[in-house]
């Protein structure tokens, strides 16, 4: 570990030279936050540095009164002797990689990222560095994402099939990022309204304010009691599955959008009628590509069960090491 630039601490990744944390799990004095998922953006810290594109979402998470400095992508700022800049990670709106430079040495912490195109956020920007800290949520070669077009084809066909059968189509997916990405992809093909669970409303609004084009949406809660949702597409967070909220969607066909849906066993185990392979994380080729493009002489792997990726990178001649965060994040963004 380049100990003056980065050190695992119980609260999260710490930069001793600049005295700040990246995505701390507890309140600290100064935090650099990579993106607005709840397991990365936690309220209560003294000051936050975030990417400007994600400011609105960050305010949702961190509170209107939080002390936040928003930075444009690529704009350098300083914490003590350390030069810091944020670079697009392609994960969700406003997601960032953190670049830190001290005495000519560069460390990049990827945060969560993906390499697949996403109309709702800036694409991942490869940043050259000496040390690259990468996530590895899907660090196995069986994870290779299908083209999003093909997935949206499947999803549209399912929606159409539900319409023919006169049943609602309820799609579960994470409320921040994935929901908006699907709404934006749908907008290429249709102008039909999609109905949203309450947990998604403000987040979708933030994306609209950021200028992301999506299909029209309507809160389920504003529909008249007893309204028939036959043939409609409804989106909800996974926590709504099996809750009383579902009662209004009699005989609904249910779908789940997640990278984990790539594996037949997980599809069957989750008990949804349909699984759609949509992930906001890098797949195996994406992880390898990013490691290559970083040009780093040392790679640290965080997140998930990174053993396989580490061993493979070592086989390829990289100096790859696990970076054990002392506490695992619960995985709101997982998948």
């Amino acid at each position: 570990m380049p100990d003056d630039l980065l050190l695992p601490r119980p609260q999260g990744l710490y930069c001793p030279a600049g005295d700040f944390f990246i995505d701390p799990m507890e309140p600290v004095r100064r935090a650099v936050v990579t993106h607005a998922h709840a397991d990365h953006a936690r309220s209560g810290s003294g000051h936050y540095d975030v990417a400007a594109a994600g400011l609105g979402l960050m305010r949702e998470r961190l509170g209107q009164d939080a002390s936040i400095t928003a930075h444009g992508y690529g704009e350098a700022f300083r914490h003590g002797p350390v030069t810091v800049s944020l670079h697009p990670a392609g994960h969700v709106l406003g997601s960032a990689q953190v670049r830190m430079e001290l005495d000519g040495r560069v460390v990049v912490v990827s945060g969560d990222y993906k390499r697949d195109p996403d109309p709702t956020c800036e694409p991942f920007e490869p940043v050259r560095c000496d040390v690259f800290v990468t996530e590895s949520t899907f660090g196995l070669p069986v994870y290779r994402w299908p083209p999003m077009d093909a997935v949206i084809d499947e999803l549209s066909a399912w929606w159409g099939d539900c319409a023919r059968r006169g049943v609602p189509a309820v799609l579960f997916c994470y409320a921040l990022g994935k929901a908006q990405r699907i709404l934006a992809e749908l907008a290429v093909r249709t102008e039909r309204t999609v109905h949203l669970h309450g947990a998604m409303l403000r987040l979708v609004e933030q994306y609209r304010e950021a200028g992301v084009r999506m299909v029209p949406t309507e809160p389920v809660s504003e529909s008249a009691r007893g309204r028939d949702f036959a043939g409609e597409l409804i989106m909800a967070p996974p926590s709504a599955a099996g809750s009383p909220w579902m009662k209004r969607f009699a005989k609904a066909s249910t779908g789940f959008a997640s990278g984990w849906m790539q594996i037949r066993g997980s599809r069957r185990r989750r008990g949804y009628d349909r699984g759609f392979v949509v992930s906001d994380h890098a797949d195996w080729p994406g992880l390898l590509q990013s490691v290559q493009q970083s040009g780093a002489r040392r790679i640290y792997i965080t997140h998930g069960d990174g053993e396989t990726l580490i061993r493979h990178l070592r086989d390829l001649g990289h100096d790859a090491q696990p970076l054990r965060l002392l506490r695992e994040r619960d995985s709101e963004s997982g998948g």
């Binding site: 196995l140 070669p141 069986v142 594996i263 053993e307 396989t308």
Partner: peptide, 13 residues
Amino acid sequence: YADWLIEDSYQHV
């Protein structure tokens, strides 16, 4: 792919 990588993947799937 190396045999061990295939085996890791098989164990996962």
